[in-house]
Design a protein around this nucleic acid. Sequence first.
DNA 1: GCCGTTTTCGGCCCGACTGTTTTCAGTCG
Length: 588
Amino acid sequence: MANKAQTGGNIRNEDIARIIEAIGDMLDILGENQFRVRAHRNAAASIRGYTRPLFEVYDAGGPKALTAISGIGEHTAKRIEQLLVTGQLPYYEELKAKVPPGLIELLNVPGLGPKKAKKIYDSLGIKSLKALVEAIEEHRLESLPGFGRKSEENILRGIKQFETMHERILLSEGYPIAREILARLREQPFVERADTAGSLRRMQETIGDIDLLCSSDEPANVMEFFISMPQVAYVLAQGETKSSIVVTNGLQLDLRVVTPEQYGAALQYFTGSKEHNVHLRHIAKVRGFKINEYGVFDVETDQRLAGKTEEEVYAILDMETPPPAIREDRGEIEAAAERRLPNLVELADIKGDFHIHTKWSDGLNSIEEVIAMAKTLGYDFIVISDHAEKLRIAGGLSVRELEEQLEVIAALNEQHADIEILCGMEMNIDNDGEVDFGASVLEKLDVVIGSIHGGFTQPKEKLTARLLKALENPYINIIGHPTGRVLGQRPPYDIDIQAVFKASAETGTFLELNSYPNRLDLKDDHLREAKDVFGCMFTIDTDAHVAGNMTYMEYGVATAQRGWLTKQDVLNTYNMAEVKRMLAQKRP
DNA sequence: GCCGTTTTCGGCCCGACTGTTTTCAGTCG
């Protein structure tokens, strides 16, 4: 009989993953077997992608149940058990005594890996970035075997790159740069095709660099063009088919060139994710195939079997082609093999937007300007959802102002036959779970969003109770930005998110996927869990405060895809009559 | 350390580029 996870409730999967990963890093520096190192990193990645808390898994089935999770074997299961039961891991502490934490930080420097970091530490005693910079300035590195003047320069530049760009940037910051450079590449006569690859093509919420791919029969011209673009700050690497540059804002771009015949294999390869590719290669290997960026080959005969298109690559393995957004090795490979890939929601399915602010509260545009933008986006409906009076900082509307707005919207509906304008509001969920207005006001609205805008530091029980109370409110249709995170600025509220999902499903309240690029809230993993485990429904909203923000829908839809949402899961894809019927179901 | 259509041992994805060395280790994706 297994022990109960005593402290388990305090140890999140992320904390466990970080410790396992750190063990892998330390083993790496200590020169351990590379496969053992990789096994730890794989286990950490697997835990990060696992939606159920490990302490629950452990409580239900002990260490044996943990080994059912891919990448976790007997050893790691035992270590996780120790962590969950005692809150301690002696093995981890032992390693930390051997490898100073500062040394692990050095691994973050581009161009500095475990071997070089270890050498620098062993021979010079350097264990911090600061000490490393000093040593380079005194040219103490170049005398070490395997190092030279060039290495010093590169490491110093790597440190600068790390310091300016050590945080991943938002997808919305990288995407326009990638688009611009792609457009220029495609204009070149020697470029046949060009696309984004990597995390940008998978539309991850943040990206570390930009991967580009193009096909050409004149790779030298492509390389020359790429490294000579005006945006280039410096060239990191330049080869015959691959170059890396850093642009003026510190962002790194990698470009790879292949022949038109190889394009599909290369696009598949460079789109990743790494985990997806490793899994795919394994399947290929078992069947006697070898996949690389040039194609799929028969190992015996070395005959090339596929590679012109991505579809060919997957087809030769008897698979459908998974959409890039879900290539994370979270079940998409199995689904592709069994021909049950989800029919993911697409931007073209979106018929309207439920969360838009105007200058009636803290937005910058008029309702008319918002309508004009909605028409260019081809929408059938929009919801004007300004703040209410209790959110003073956002210039929220009083009841009298709301009544005025209702009249204005009624008049606008008369003028615009081709689009329907609904009147909603974003209620602030206060510290006790109450909202600005009562039933007599809310019943006049078509849609009501409830969101938390303050009191973030309340204890978990209190924060959760606020949301649950709002979910029980029969007039609240949508919970806005449910976890409250702001990427790079604010962590999510400390809430029992599963309790929120459960109540959402039970009360028929929609969960918002806020498309604001620094929110993307709910995030991909939460969407999938809320849908699969609890059966929740969603709206994809932009929370636009400027009419132009309404184009953020693209990022929301991409995140929905990453969460495996289909058209049926998303209220925005239904027609107006269905939307009204579904919203009305919760009303008393 | 993990895993199993190679199943309890023996593999583990695969190739480009750089710098230092002179045939290759280290790093990256």
